[in-house]
Amino acid sequence: MALLKAAFTVLTSALLLVQTPRASEYQVKAVFLFNFAQFVEWPAVAAPDPQMPVIIGILGEDPLGTFLDETVRGERLGLRPFEIRRYRELTDITACNILFISRSESERVAEILAALGKRPILTVSDGDDFAKRGGMIQFVNDKNRIRLRINLEAAQAANVTISSKLLRVAEIVRTPRP
């Protein structure tokens, strides 16, 4: 009986608590990754079948846990469901629309991007200088906020079209020419 009363007190006091909206870093990044699908167009070859899943891949050590899985569960882009794949090696990457490259792969970003070449895959990472090194979208932690940095040339080179709505909220950078 005492326990029940204690539970009830905790509940009612909890209900009265005021809170500010805060979220975990990778929760927000997962939602960004999901949103990107709606602001990007791939060439028709990337999805010959209108019901083919939109594949979001994660390369390297996965910091997203189930956040990304939870985000895309039950969601569709038109007729296309979403699917999450986790890759250890570059050679595992077959069909893929959006590729999140983990910070664990920072040291070999150049090698990864070179291997992907002009394949129509939207590359995303939160590794340092990812966009300047030829990646398409970089998450930048600015104090407690997440900003986007986009390398438009890199996207264009792979025939990936990024909507102006996304470009508007991002900082556009170029790959420095030697």
Partner: peptide, 14 residues
């Protein structure tokens, strides 16, 4: 989304 406060150490679903 860009104005959400994020916390780097947080509950991470396994």
């Amino acid at each position: 989304l860009m104005n959400i406060d994020v916390m780097s150490v947080s509950l991470r679903p396994q």
